[in-house]
């Protein structure tokens, strides 16, 4: 055993080496890249261990702070995200752990790393694009969801044209990637409610034109999850204006009525929760009223037999009885005249 072991690298040196490695990796030819992959992996492991400690060793607070500052300021997190596909399997997981740790770091009320990303939002779009590469999709998803916890970063994503890419990502045939993309999509739309309500009002047509495709998807899970999220969005009081607009369109009502009759019990049930808003609306526009009137008998009959096995679910049964009562009492203009 040597008396004086090799000097451990300072945070600055570590981050510098990592940045150099990433740069080399990006430009490396096939042959030399292996060396850099290994080197990167080693550095990532060292950094992760310093940030999180090991099973029997706590991290050193000063070291962690210095490392986090350096990783942010030297643009290293950005470089990591950009070159994620060149990093090996275990290394990528270390990147996620490092990224999420640094992003969460707080100095008083400030989040230095978040503040940095606000000025350099490119990293967000690198992560969004990550969903297109199945080797790194899940890693990118984990980092992106962490970013979306912060309203300024979530705003950047939602208001960018890239946001509409999610409508394609949630439908990819690979289940684990599609469902991860859906989690992120859902987080984006439900976490910062005031902002999202404003966004949906301003971009109503474009958003729901895209959303319609999800509701009509061939993919059972996409359809089911999109319908459930739609119910959650419309019933959230922040989205009152959006809801009012949604339930004024007869096409939306038709879609929900058809979905009430889908083979899948789960889809029927989710559709019920959107359908009920149309019926409960005290100011139904004429086209909506007309459809309900034309199907009055059928609807009463249908709802009476609808999901009778849910006898335990009191709220559901109350809502169902309420709907049946409402529909029975519907009176149209023609009826009043005759």
């Amino acid at each position: 055993m040597p008396l004086f072991g090799p000097k451990t690298k300072s945070p600055q040196e570590l981050v510098k080496s990592l940045n150099d490695c990433l740069k080399a990796l990006e430009n490396a030819k096939e042959k030399e890249s292996k060396r850099y992959v290994e080197e990167t992996s080693k550095l990532l492991h060292t950094i992760k261990t310093q940030l999180y400690g090991t099973l029997d060793q706590e991290p050193v607070t000063e070291q962690v702070a210095a490392l986090a500052t350096e990783l942010t300021q030297a643009n290293c997190l950005h470089n990591l995200a950009k070159n994620l596909q060149y990093i090996d399997f275990e290394g990528r997981k270390d990147v996620v752990a490092i990224f999420n740790n640094v992003l969460r770091r707080q100095i008083g009320p400030r989040h230095p790393c978040m503040d940095y990303f606000v000025t350099k939002p490119e990293v967000l779009f690198i992560l969004v694009k990550g969903y297109e590469n199945q080797d790194i999709a899940l890693n990118c998803g984990m980092m992106l969801r962490e970013c979306c916890r912060f309203e300024p970063l979530a705003k950047s994503v939602i208001t960018s044209p890239d946001f509409y890419k999610f409508f394609a990502y949630v439908e990819v045939s690979t289940f684990d990637i599609a469902s991860d993309a859906f989690s992120t999509f859902k987080d984006l739309l439900t976490r910062h409610k005031v902002f999202v309500a404003k966004f949906l009002e301003e971009h109503y047509d474009e958003f729901f034109r895209h959303y319609q495709l999800l509701l009509n998807s061939e993919n059972y899970v996409t359809r089911r999850q999109a319908l459930k999220l739609l119910g959650e969005l419309l019933l959230d009081r922040h989205n009152f204006t959006v809801m009012n607009r949604y339930i004024s369109h007869p096409d939306n009502l038709k879609l929900m009525m058809n979905m009430l009759r889908e083979k899948s019990k789960n889809i029927q049930f989710e559709a019920f929760h959107v359908f009920k808003i149309f019926v409960a609306n005290p100011n139904k526009p004429k086209p909506i009223m007309d459809i309900l009137l034309r199907n009055k008998e059928r609807l009463v009959d249908f709802l009476t037999k609808f999901h009778t096995e849910r006898s335990e679910d009191e709220q559901f049964n109350d809502e169902k009885s309420y709907l049946i009562k409402q529909i029975k009492e519907l009176r149209g203009a023609e009826e009043n005249m005759s």
Partner: peptide, 14 residues
Amino acid sequence: KRRAKNISTASIGS
């Protein structure tokens, strides 16, 4: 499985 490929080429950290 395809990830196994990655690890076999560079098994650092595993």
